[in-house]
Write a protein that binds this DNA or RNA. Sequence first.
RNA 1: AGGGGUGUAGCCAAGCGGUAAGGCAACGGGUUUUGAUCCCGUCAUGCGUAGGUUCGAAUCCUGCCACCCCUGCCA
Length: 556
Amino acid sequence: MTEEKAKPVNFIEKIINEDLASGKHSNIVTRFPPEPNGYLHIGHAKSICLNFGLAQQFAGQCNLRFDDTNPEKEEDEYVQSIQDDVRWLGFQWAGDIHYTSDYFDQLHAWAIDLIKAGKAYVCDLSAEQAKEYRGNFETPGKNSPFRDRSVEENLELFEKMRAGEFDEGACGLRVKIDMASPNMSMRDPYIYRIKKATHHQTGDKWCIYPSYDFAHGQSDAIEGITHSVCTLEFADHRPLYEWFIANLETPAEPHQYEFGRLNINYTVTSKRKLRALVEGKVVNGWDDPRMPTISGMRRRGYTPSAIRNFCDSLAVAKTDGTVDVAQLEFFIRDDLNQNAPRAMCVINPLKVVITNMAADHDETLTVPFLQDREELGSREMPFTNEIFIDQDDFKEEYSKKFKKKFCVGKRIRLRHGYVIQADGFEKDEQGNITQVNATLIENTLGCDPEDGDKPKGVVHWVSCKHAVEAELRMYSRLFTDANPDGGKKDFMECLNPESLVVKTGLIEPALASVAPETGFQFEREGYYVADRFDHSSDKPVFNLTIGLREDKSLNS
RNA sequence: AGGGGUGUAGCCAAGCGGUAAGGCAACGGGUUUUGAUCCCGUCAUGCGUAGGUUCGAAUCCUGCCACCCCUGCCA
């Protein structure tokens, strides 16, 4: 037995191991806390795989919590899509779905505790004034003139805020920490602000909402989260997170750990930019197959296991690097290669007439969907005297480079079928080859020609009479620049004009009736998937998931 | 400028004082009824940089450099 090298233990696993060994925790609880203000993308997939994966690995649990503290940006559409995406990826959260808004009453009570303890105050500074008072990196801030209001006054004002007696922005509740802190997030951060907006969960019950900082750690505490994992940009907030846990009577003391978010070249993963692509109609919605959203990748034909394998291949560390999209593509191909049924589709048809076969010959070949995977079954392929092969597979003149191609005097194997030999071809006035005439070599189904003249190449084909037209949506990368997210240029200016090319392909008849979202490898062409929404047997539509790897030595 | 974080190959990384794992990419070669897959091989005298400690340093110490994040009543 060759032992597989153990996967390195990442720093979060190390911490968990220590916490388990020391008895600090007897079981671990993580959470995936998206804000329902957009669709999940590949970066979230990494976080989902990490948080749910940690729970599985340590036999703990992972909660799904919607971090919904800002009613102006959040919508039900997103809470639905996020649930669908998490489940589709193959994960199930523990128990019911949680919402930060479930804890608004408790959070409100804690805010009052802070006021009573003299640790929070209602500040009437305008947003602009607050910014001035905050100072900047080299200048300490100044205390707000409202910082020393009495507990009674603060209680009364906060209650008025809650009751809707003030306009938005008129005031806010701040926590009294340190206006001179070098950490800007500790300069008396706001913990409650007025927003007279209807909340997707709590409706019009509240007109004041807790800030992310005031809600997150306490929500973790309420849910008994042991390891609260977030991305690097929150590292500066950790002291604040800890301040609330230390200054409030919380049921537990969760800890926050930060890891580097996933970046991939040739794509963008900021909600703002993804939204711009959707709203600018650059793509057809959040689930356009060119989008790095989970629903987009799904529609593209990426599989949950391929995405999970990719995420598991990524390091959980504190470096913020950019992963080459080729690494993602590797895992897509790897999964599809092992599991996708094979089928045939001719994209640029060239008719081949087999002259030694009767015009009414109609043979049915039973072909397995995937060699060595009998459970995937087989389909029937009609074989007749007129078939289509791809134009690129026939060459007028033989050359070393085309040793595997079809040309006059040479033989070729029809995949899963017979060997044929080209005798001649016809051209139109423009010089395009319009037809190849060939003869079938007898007794070559499943075996080599008896005369020992083995064909060098194999081609995919489809019976002219039986082929079905299918719309092929051929997708490729959305951006031509490796770093569309980079500062210099506008990401909208590096769009790939050929990210979607629509063609018509001729598929074997068995493919027309396939269910939406069924993925195939169209042999020698690439991986395709029946479109989740537009495919039907009346009008087959297949999306290009990803091409096959190409032998680069042939491109010279 | 203050604070937080990070620098190991083209990319992602392991390594935690004993002489540079692994994956992707790339490049050779073999097999093949998919020019796919699969198999085999090559790919850092070097760990941001300059010093220091040590028998021995990517690992410890000091200085310097580069990059990312932070001045929302966003998350």
